[in-house]
Design a protein around this nucleic acid. Structure first.
Lengths: 207, 207
DNA sequence: GTTAAATGTTATCAATGGTAACAATGTTAA
DNA sequence: TTAACATTGTTACCATTGATAACATTTAAC
């Protein structure tokens, strides 16, 4: 009916979407359940029916972030090992740079320990697995050296995560001036992870 | 005199030290100016004479963290390039793992933008410079390939920062079980950054 | 329809960041 | 010595926030 609808009906989803907007625009510290409630035309305790906690809401946003990241990593073409490895790194860093506040929420240690949020934990792992599978495939095809997949994956993830965080927080001087920074950094690690049958200095072989 | 001393005399330093204790034990979210004041036997607004802001206090702690990190990086022996590069990475990651909450404060994006805290910015850069100098020296000695020092440094910092953050936040599955993880990861990047005159697969040459 | 589960409301509390106005202490110069 | 002044502390106060309790309404199950 056309009435001041006692029931909102869609509160959980709407609150999450609005919180995501706030996060994107002003960072996680700016997210307040009361402010969200006011903007949604609803009383503050109503939100507690859907999120037991402020932190639970933040965890929900982080989960969404990990899923979005995972989907973008999955979309990377897996045909050519080297191309796939470079591309997945570029996509990863691009995601962080497009969503700095969301990325900070996902990795800033604001929702800890992960063990207290099992869904968050699995969401994070599912993104990690895409990267791991890409590495495993490349190694199976003989493109990478014999080091354990877990080691190479840890190195790769560390590198892209570190680069993401450092660039979005402005720690790397002159990072914006170097559009090829990410690709160059990735190439260094790749060169050290390649099997010996592959040639060195492939920098001009990537058109 | 032996009186309930109106003047504390040492409040700024004491507050900072106590805040650091709280940070270490419970994370930055647990730092409250009022709680600090109570523990110091002082009124809450007294702290505002020394820290214009809660964030200013946090920035002060982060500055101290960057300085401590810089000092530990400076203490690394610089004689042998490869040894220096590996060792500085190990020291870096060890610092983060010993001081996870301090490290999160330094890099978690809680005190942003850095531009608003010039002292924090310079403290961060001074730690970064130690790493950069180590890379520059190794390259000058012919140990590294001809890639720009800024690129290799960015890769190195990204790697150790990423590995630090991922391990202290429990994102890397089975990281604790692998004591050689850090060294292995560092070696991968080093192998890709070495000049061609150096031999490959130096894994058994590092006793 | 009656009843029970969901989902919303108002009232209320404790903790916190922050400011204003005032008081005590220490310092400096006439 | 003492009068002026900056430092550094105090009490009083306010707005915002997270969170809970007790109550009301709507939806859905039976």
């Amino acid at each position: 009916m056309a009435k001041p609808a006692y029931h909102h009906g869609d509160l959980q989803l709407q609150a999450q979407l609005l919180a995501l907007d706030t996060l994107r625009a002003q960072g996680d510290a700016a997210i307040s359940l009361r402010a969200l409630a006011k903007q949604l035309g609803v009383s503050a305790p109503a939100l507690y029916r859907h999120f037991s906690d402020r932190e639970t809401l933040l965890a929900e946003l982080a989960i969404g972030g990990f899923e979005a990241l995972r989907d973008r990593l999955r979309a990377v073409d897996q045909q050519i090992p080297r191309k796939a490895l470079i591309e997945i790194g570029l996509v990863y860093v691009a995601f962080a740079q497009e969503e700095p506040n969301l990325y900070r929420l996902m990795f800033g240690g604001r929702v800890l320990p992960m063990s207290a949020h099992p869904r968050l934990d699995t969401a994070g792992k599912s993104a990690f697995e895409v990267l791991e599978n890409t590495v495993a495939r490349a190694r199976q095809l003989g493109y990478l050296k014999a080091s354990p997949v877990s080691l190479i994956t840890a190195a790769a993830w560390s590198l892209v995560h570190g680069l993401s965080q450092l660039t979005i927080d402005g720690h790397l001087p002159g990072a914006k001036a170097e559009p090829m920074l990410t690709e160059g950094v990735l190439s260094l690690l790749l060169d050290g992870s390649r099997s010996n049958e592959q040639q060195q200095s492939q920098q001009d072989l990537t058109p």
